[in-house]
Structures are given as C-alpha cells and as structure tokens.
C-alpha cells in the first residue's frame, strides 16, 4: 500500500524556525499525510473543539468563579439579561441585548448614574474568558480612571450578555464612556479571549459603527496591561472628540514597541 507520510518535521526544525514558530499560536509545520493531517494533528483538533464547545455552554457564577477579595473591593454584583439560559441566549440574540426588569431595578438601586467611566462585565460566549482576564484588567482600568480624575461607575457582571447591551447600559446609567468586557466566542487555540467594546454616550440605535473594539485580550494575544492602556487611550480620544466608532482610530502600536517599522521597510 502506497503511503505518503513525511518524516517527522519536528526533528528537522532549524533553531531559527523554531523561534519564529514560537511567536504564533497558529498550527504551523505540522507535516501532512498526503493532502490531509497526520493522525496526531487530526485528534488534537478534535480535542480542542470538544473543549471549545464546552466553554460556550458553561454558566458564569460570580461567587464561585471570582476571588472574593476582588468581588468585595469592587462591590461586584451579578444581573441577568432577558435570556433565561444559554440555549435561549444562543438562539435569540436580542434577549441578550436587554436587561431583565429585575436587573434594571437592581442596577438603578446600586449604581451611580451620569459617571465619566462605566465598566460592565458580560459573559458573552465564554465565561472562561471573563474569569481569566477581568481580575487583571479591572484594577488597571479603575486606576487609569482615577489618574484622570474621572468619576467611576460601579462595575457589575451580566449573565447571557450580548454586545448590544451597551445601548441599554446607556439608557439606564447615562455614562460618558462605557466599556463592556465580554467573553469572545471560544476558538480552538484559546477559550480565554476577551473583548472590550466601547462607546461614547451609548444609547438606543447605536450599532457597531458607533463602537470601538479591542479584541483578543489574553495571554498570547493582547495581555491585560496593554489592553488597559489601549482602552484608556481610546477613552481619552472619545472624551476629546465627543464621539466613538469609526471616526476614532487607534494610534497605538504597542505590540511593535512604538518603533517605526514602516519607515525601515518603505
């Protein structure tokens, strides 16, 4: 039987290639069996898919999943959208864009309105992302707001939350800048990737055109300290220009250490 199996590529990786390969989580240099994957690759992919699917369906529980100290120091509390469970949340996205009546009452009872900077945490499609990234991100953002003399709203956690909830946050609390830290759809490489969606004076009718996004906040993407710096820089721009969305362009290139690579290549 003819078999087209290549020699183990791992053994022949030059050092330079190995170093380069370490810079991306992409599945490179895996070899091939004809025009297909080697068996190891095939099964690794199946394994990662199994875990990603599980991450979508796991529920967030503030008291179980967060350090009690963090919950206490930021007086975090948990509310729900109009989606009752994950299945309904997946099928009917509009329910995840609106607070339940109970949530509205709770938020109004506990949160100051008309603040300069409001941080909201939403589970989105991965509670694992929220659990992994928010504990590092939240203190950095709070510190940044303090350094700018901004009034900071009280942060709360929203279960079954979609990005469009930002409009409802605006209607309820009227913040100047709102940041929604929300779990991204789990990929095979990581289920711990968080997004920060931001809006200047969010309100009914806003779409993604009025929002700015920093995505891929996780250990191998944008680490929390860089994410916090970028979120705050965007907030500065929003405050200065009194607008958010496509009119605002990020000027930071933190992953490139600010050096002008373009000029070296031009």
């Amino acid at each position: 039987m003819a078999r087209e199996i290549q020699p183990q590529p791992q053994n022949q990786l030059t050092r330079a290639l190995a170093e380069l390969r370490a810079r991306t989580p992409a599945r490179l240099v895996v070899g091939r069996a004809g025009s297909s994957y080697r068996t190891d690759t095939q099964l690794e992919l199946r394994e990662d898919h199994a875990f990603a699917v599980d991450a979508v369906h796991s529920e967030l529980d503030l008291n179980r999943d967060f350090d009690p100290q963090l919950v206490a120091s930021y007086k975090l509390f948990e509310v729900q959208t109009q989606a009752h469970d994950k299945a309904e949340f997946l099928k009917r996205p509009q329910l995840g864009r609106q607070f339940s009546d109970e949530a509205r009452a709770t938020i109004l009872a506990h949160c100051p309105t008309d603040v300069d900077f409001q941080i909201v945490v939403g589970d989105g499609l991965s509670s694992a992302a929220v659990v992994s990234q928010v504990p590092a991100l939240l203190p950095l953002l709070a510190k940044g707001a303090q350094a700018r003399n901004w009034s900071l709203g009280r942060t709360f956690v929203v279960c079954h939350c979609r990005v469009g909830l930002l409009n409802d946050v605006g209607a309820l609390l009227r913040p100047r800048v709102a940041v929604l830290l929300i779990g991204e759809r789990p990929g095979l490489a990581t289920a711990e990737s968080l997004s920060a969606y931001m809006a200047y004076r969010p309100q009914a009718g806003h779409t993604d055109a009025q929002r700015n996004l920093i995505s891929n906040i996780h250990a191998r993407g944008v680490p929390p300290d860089q994410a916090a710096a970028r979120i705050l820089a965007l907030a500065d721009q929003m405050v200065a220009q009194q607008i958010s969305g496509i009119a605002i362009k990020e000027e930071l290139t933190v992953n490139l250490d600010g050096k002008s690579v373009a000029s070296r290549l031009a």
Binding site: V222, E250, T253, N255, L256, V261
Partner: peptide, 10 residues
Amino acid sequence: AIESVDTVAV
C-alpha cells in the same frame, strides 16, 4: 487584530 492605521500600514 488591531484596527489602527499604523498597524495596518506596517
């Protein structure tokens, strides 16, 4: 991943 003019240009 980053929607900035500098990143896109680079």
